[in-house]
Design a protein around this nucleic acid. Structure first.
Length: 945
RNA sequence: GCGAGCGUAGCUCAGCGGGAGAGCAUCGCCUUCACACGGCGGGGGUCGCAGGUUCAAUCCCUGCCGCUCGCACCA
């Protein structure tokens, strides 16, 4: 007999659900037993299932978005693991270039002053020292987010944890860079990019957030002249000029043309002429282009190719010169003539003042405009020409578009595919160089001798162009966009560029789960790189979850102070309730407004399950000899063997378990986790606790076979429920499962092969499959009938405000032959659930006495008769009956109306018509009963003073 | 401007062709031996508005209105 890993010192179940008591220990048990570890190879016939975690920032802290995505992923991973797959969920963190560098910069700024008395900057430390500091910072903070992921219950294979700047990932980055360079898909060029003057780095288009700003529209006067400088005149003899509206007057310093629409008749006579650039006096051509909108502004446009994306395109089209007047330092360059050295904002003021002085400023209007802000620091990002590294994206985008078009990759919800296509089909080259220090330094070396560029996987020995030795070579100081390494994540983490077994087994990964906000940043780029380097898309399915917002629907942000910290919720209520909440709300196509109330509600749910299990133990321990021995072959086999002799209630709950199992499985498989969660909630609370356990109390107290049968059924149903619920609520289900008397250890195929011991854990138990054989229509019908009777009596009690302490007798009449036997069989349960003294058949003649309430029931066909004397106020009962009659009357009227329409009876499906006729009969009978009861009551109340 | 989503009970959401559901909140009764993190019962909605298709529309179609979110921006 091989060894089994068991949890040490199991504690008895506490009085109620107290997650703090066991969550951490449970996680530790799983982790130490190696439950999270995948195998590099699949067992024969086994499938692999792999998700790579969207790597959180290495120095970040867990926020609700993380909690959501990791709960969803963990749920899927646990489900697949229990279903028998070789399951790998690969953990890791991202170096997060700008974010991390900024944190460290802030830290050193606080530490001391530089030589001139200002706070220390990274430049005071120098690159090497600064990087040392950042690595140290990373080591100190990296544990926080991973510990938080553990608190959430994430079953990540920690032995495979990766970091985007670890040796392997760095090697992958260099490999990709070199290959793309060799394929001419990476190039270095002088192009217009977004520049953040505060962060002092280039940004990609995506890192710039267009933001509404109140601005102004200044109308400027450009005089028009011939090439030789003679003023041009208008047809009516006045001097020709162009009035141009602009929101950024300071950029005029870099204007190299003005443009009008070719068919704009106002300006036809200016075609081919020149404009005199205000302030600088430069002559620039008047060009025509249909890009110009005649309706907007004055219909004339100034063109500044160096500082505007659209102008850059026009400039290229018309071969215009490019004049950079704004520098990376946020100041006007020497090209700006008298304005050199001014900050942009100062330059604007001065330019406007000078224009005004020269009479060239026509007017100023208010104007709402969008300004691009740096995603990281919110300062204005200026478009400017700069020498940067770019990825030529179109050749990479093409197959990535095709992969989604042909369905090799599917997005869910599907409508995101449209968004993906939109962006991918209009994609611009990707600026990948960043003027930061924290990141993958670009593997390009410049030769001081020949100015040649050497791109290499490792530090080159000599210049690839002129052969000069290494001392002449200097590596590019810039680093790569953080998303460059993230794009390689699905294969770099599996060992690429080595040909590893893990890569073979787990690539392509099964699914990607992430937020829609990073479709472009991350998802699209992973698809492009995956296809290009692996020949295959990195995942088959992309699941995109909604945004987590606060309970008012606002985005959570620190500045608004509306952030709900998942760790606070975990500490207070446990990880499971939070996970259940997120899962239950993860329905697609809607933002998730998280409310703490909801979490509390699901904590109550966990408590409910806890107490149901305690109920089982209580009953179990009372069994003869203290402990009921495990049935031979286990509970399931026992139930199978005794199926025909099981009570209706037992058959019912086993049948309902199949429905629940099917729903949970379907929800997981279709990525509708909320469906799974809701099915479980309904089943556990309503069916198992409210009905089954209440029903089972009678046989359990009865003892003997009845008790044994119910105990085994309840134990089995609970055990199966724990399995079904485990992917969503791993901690509490494991804790409760461990408490069960008949549990068995289990193992995964891979562990067996590797000689690893089995583990006594719910994590490795087989995920249930719905079994049609256990679906019992008859038992469900029986239970429905019993529920109808019980509810009718409870309703009578409730509406008449009769205390549960008051017991009374109930009689009934029926025209059905089977009802008396049916009620006799379930006599005890009905009495217990309704807290009544007796339920007995009364003859039709004995019935009909005046002191009775009459409660008609359609299924089973019968009438309850309850003697009112001393029980209720007759007037109250009159009210109740009247209310009931109104309801039934309205129903009847509706059904009759429907049936009276010939169009309905002619065209509706026959089955439906029959159903409606049936309903009509029922309502009508019910109404007759009620009205006769009412007339009796009214007579009675008339007699009473 | 283009694209997507959402408007259902006081709140948060499910449902999406046959007369509207849940949780929380609320009201009434109950400390009944798993659970007051509980039980039982009640009240509460012309399913954003207007048309159309259909025997039948919260559900399908069209148009509006309102709220989000992408993309592109008109300089």
């Amino acid at each position: 007999m091989s060894q089994v890993i068991e949890r040490k010192n199991p504690a008895p179940l506490t009085k109620s659900f107290e997650p703090q008591a066991f969550e951490s220990a449970t996680y530790q048990f799983w982790n130490e037993a190696g439950c999270f570890e995948a195998s590099d190879t699949n067992a024969p016939g086994q499938q692999s299932f792999c998700i790579v975690i969207p790597p959180p920032n290495v120095t970040g802290v867990l926020h609700m978005g993380h909690a959501l995505t990791n709960t969803i992923q963990d749920t899927l991973v646990r489900w697949r693991r229990m279903s028998g797959d070789n399951t790998l969920w690969l953990p890791g963190t991202d170096h997060a270039g700008i974010a991390t560098q900024t944190q460290v910069e802030k830290a050193i700024a606080k530490e001391g002053k530089g030589p001139t008395g200002r706070p220390l900057t990274r430049h005071d430390l120098g690159r090497e020292k600064f990087l040392e500091r950042t690595w140290k910072w990373k080591e100190e903070h990296a544990g926080e987010i991973t510990n938080q992921l553990k608190r959430l219950g994430s079953s990540l294979d920690w032995k495979r944890e990766r970091f985007t700047m670890d040796e392997g990932c760095s090697a992958a980055v260099r490999e990709v860079f070199v290959r793309l360079y060799e394929e001419k898909l990476i190039y270095r060029g002088e192009r217009i990019i977004n520049w953040c003057c505060r962060c002092q780095t280039a940004l990609s288009d995506l890192e710039v957030i267009p933001t509404d700003r109140k601005g102004n529209f200044w109308h400027l006067r450009y005089k028009i002249v011939e090439k030789n400088g003679t003023p041009v005149k208008n047809p009516e003899g006045t001097l020709a000029e162009l009035i141009i509206a602009t929101t950024r007057p300071e950029t005029l310093l870099g204007d190299t043309a003005v443009a009008v629409h070719p068919e704009d008749e106002r300006y036809t006579h200016l075609h081919g002429k020149f404009a005199v650039l205000p302030l600088l006096g430069r002559m620039i051509p008047v060009i025509t282009d249909s890009y110009v909108d005649r309706e907007f502004g004055t219909g004339a446009l100034k063109i500044t190719p160096a500082h505007d994306f659209n102008d850059a395109d026009l400039g290229q089209k018309h071969s215009l010169p490019i004049i950079s007047v704004m520098g990376k330092d946020g100041k006007i360059t020497a090209e700006g003539g008298p304005y050199v050295g001014l900050k942009f904002a100062e330059a604007r003021e001065k330019v406007l003042a000078d224009l005004e002085a020269q009479g060239l400023l026509v007017k100023k209007e208010d104007h709402a405009q969008k300004v691009g802000l740096c995603q990281r620091c919110d300062s204005v990002a200026e478009p400017m020409i700069s020498k940067q590294w770019f990825v030529k994206i179109e050749p990479l985008a093409k197959p990535a578009i095709e992969a989604v078009e042909t369905g090799k990759i599917e997005f869910s919800p599907k409508n995101w595919e449209k968004t993906y296509f939109e962006w991918m089909r209009n994609i611009r080259d990707w600026c990948i160089s960043r003027q930061l220090w924290w990141g993958h330094q670009i593997p390009a070396w410049y030769c001081s001798g020949c100015e040649g560029v050497t791109v290499s996987r490792s530090a080159p020995q000599k210049c690839s162009s002129c052969g000069a030795n290494a001392s002449q070579l200097k590596q590019d100081e810039d680093v790569l966009d953080t998303w460059f390494s993230s794009a390689l994540w699905p294969f770099a983490t599996l060992g690429w560029p080595q040909k590893t077994q893990a890569l073979q087994t787990f690539y392509p990964t099964s699914i990607l789960e992430t937020g829609f906000d990073i479709i472009f940043f991350w998802v699209a780029r992973m698809i492009m790189m995956g296809i290009h380097f692996m020949g295959e898309a990195p995942f088959k399915k992309v699941y995109l979850h909604a945004m987590v917002r606060d309970e008012k629907g606002e985005k959570m942000s620190k500045s608004k102070g509306n952030v709900i910290d998942p760790l606070v919720l975990i500490n207070e209520h446990g990880a499971d309730p939070l996970r259940f909440t997120l899962t239950a709300m993860a329905g697609q196509g809607r933002d998730i407004k998280l409310s703490v109330d909801r979490v509390e509600g699901y904590r109550a749910f966990a408590n409910k399950l806890w107490n149901a299990t305690k109920f089982f133990h209580l009953q179990f321990e009372e069994a003869q000899g203290g402990v009921l021995p495990e049935p031979k072959g286990g509970a399931a086999a026992w139930l199978e063997a005794h199926r025909s002799s099981l009570s209706p209630a037992n058959r019912w709950i086993l049948s309902r378990l199949q429905h629940c199992t099917a729903a949970v499985e379907k929800g997981f498989a279709q990525f509708e986790l909320n469906e799974s969660a809701n099915a479980l909630y309904e089943f556990v609370w309503k069916e198992l606790c409210d009905w089954y356990i209440e029903f089972s109390k009678t046989p359990l107290r009865q003892g003997g076979n009845a008790r044994e049968q119910s105990l085994i059924t309840l134990g089995h149903v609970l055990e199966q429920t724990f399995r079904l619920m485990h992917p969503i609520m791993p901690f509490v289900t494991e804790e409760l499962w461990q408490s069960l008397p008949w549990k068995r250890s289990a193992n995964t195929p891979a562990r067996v092969r590797e000689g690893k011991p089995a583990v006594m854990t719910l994590m490795f138990q087989t995920f249930p499959k719905a079994q049609d054989a256990w679906v019992d229509v008859k038992a469900e019908q029986t239970m429905r009938q019993l529920q109808n009777i019980v509810e009718a009596i409870r309703n009578f009690r409730g509406e008449n405000n009769i205390s549960p302490k008051v017991e009374f007798g109930v009689g009934y009449t029926t025209t059905s032959d089977s009802v008396p036997a049916f009620l006799k069989e379930h006599h005890a349960e009905i009495l217990a659930l309704c807290r009544i003294q007796k339920l007995e058949l009364v003859s039709a003649s004995a019935a009909g006495q005046e002191f009775e309430a009459v409660i008609p029931i359609a299924e089973p066909l019968m009438e309850l008769r309850i003697s009112l004397s001393g029980l209720v106020n007759v007037e109250e009962e009159v009210k109740r009956v009247k209310k009931e009659m109104e309801k039934v009357g309205a129903d009847l009227e509706f059904v009759r109306g429907k049936l009276s329409k010939e169009s309905f009876t002619a065209k509706a499906p026959p089955a439906l018509i029959e159903k409606e006729r049936q309903r009509e009969r029922e309502f009508s009978e019910k109404l007759t009963e009620l009205s006769s009861a009412l007339s009796k009551l009214e007579k009675l109340s008339g007699k009473t003073p």
